[in-house]
Write a protein that binds this DNA or RNA. Structure first.
Lengths: 232, 232
DNA sequence: GACCTCCGTTGACAGCTGTCAACATCCTCT
DNA sequence: AGAGGATGTTGACAGCTGTCAACGGAGGTC
């Protein structure tokens, strides 16, 4: 039963039993349940939000129901950008999440931090466009795993990622909507990767990367770099 | 013979014979020839640029040569955004273009106009992601035609677009790289639309929209709008 | 605890789009 | 004007990915 808009109460939110990463209390931050729609594309809102903890996806819909997830947000990322006062995208939680509203003023994005985030997001979108338009199904799924492993790896961000286990917050359908594929194709790719020893999972969302190098190779990860000539 | 980086001279640039839209002289603006690479992805630059006139595309490359055009820019659009001082995308001219460098300070995007442009671009990228991930070849090509007709229609922007003729600055290969298709598929779609009376072209780049409504219908254009409930 | 829906997996099959090839046309350069 | 390359078109064919279907299992509700 998805809630709508931003609930103020942390109703269905038992703080995780042995909470490994204690949610640091942030000014005005709120906890939101899983599968809540926070913002609707085309709707109005008066604030930007920062993801403090959890996983949030942005999406757009075509009127026949086809969905495209345009971004997957982890801790630190901002969302709620508007054009002409209207939300660019729908925002939904894929996990219990803690979000922190930013002031009205930041809506104008004249805040340097916000502007920087905008540019980073723009870059991410362009990289994802290249994935959507020019990568094969296997490359897409492998790319997604590499990216999500970085975002949500279990070991925290204390230097070396011990074993590349992470919680996949997305369902197969979410992955499909993110990568421009169907559920069946995503499932087939994941299980092939599993058979080939690239990854492993017993529960559908408990992922472990067994062979990072081959996975990244499968992702066709490196973008072409013309860069500038080395300046000696 | 593509030039590299920003040339200061307007070498191969005969100002268009009966120039309908006289290039308004802008402070410090420069004219750049067709098929020039202005910026390289991963390279450094110290300024943003505004497109005063002409057509410029942004692109990314995978290292095996696959290319994705991430945006098509017309008059008024900005480009040259960086992350960590590095260009996000390669920028190339598809026509003789006039560009105007903006000050260093604007690189930080704290200028409200720049910030607004960033948000608009972000929205465009998300709409395009939906196209790349969730539309069929026909829908993609039709969408592209609708968008390019708006961008480059011949009648200027004096209210009603008389007859929807416009100059297609992109080659079939450019269209393919923009839409995530192959040249052959693009060509087949365009010629089918021509047979069906949606569009017409004698020269490959001289496009005319004959049936805007059916073309937009083919584009599957309307995105789902949940909007806000009407407030009586 | 039983039911029931959602989610994930797997197989069979089809069709959209990519691949390969040949050819036409346009443009540039000599 | 002629040569040659880039661009565009069209056909034949293949294969990647989508579609349809069936099934199993997990989680949630009563």
């Amino acid at each position: 039963m998805p809630e709508t808009l931003i609930p103020t109460a942390a109703s269905a939110v038992p703080p995780r039993a042995s909470s490994i990463r204690p949610p640091r209390p942030t000014p005005r931050s709120r906890v939101v349940g899983e599968n809540s729609t926070l913002l609707y594309e085309g709707g109005r809102n008066r604030s930007l939000y920062r993801v403090v903890d959890g996983c949030i996806v942005l999406s757009q819909l075509l009127d026949d129901g086809r969905r495209q997830i345009t971004d997957v947000l982890g801790p630190g990322r901002l969302f709620g950008f508007t054009v002409d006062g209207r939300n660019i995208a729908t925002a939904e939680t894929l996990s219990i999440a803690r979000i922190e509203p930013l002031g009205d003023a930041d809506l104008n994005a004249t805040n340097p931090t916000v502007a920087s985030e905008l540019k980073t997001t723009l870059q991410r979108m362009q990289v994802h466009a290249t994935l959507l338009g020019r990568k094969t199904a296997s490359e897409k799924v492998a790319s997604a795993l590499v990216e999500l492993a970085r975002l949500f790896n279990r070991t925290g961000r204390n230097g070396a990622p011990a074993r590349l286990g992470f919680h996949l917050h997305l369902t197969r359908a979410d992955l499909a909507d993110w990568l421009g594929l169907t559920v069946e194709t995503v499932s087939r790719c994941l299980n092939r990767f599993k058979r080939e020893g690239l990854i492993d999972f017993s529960h559908p969302k408990t992922m472990r990367v067994l062979d990072p190098e081959r996975l990244e190779a499968t992702a066709g990860f490196t973008r072409h770099r013309t860069g500038d000539a080395a300046r000696p």
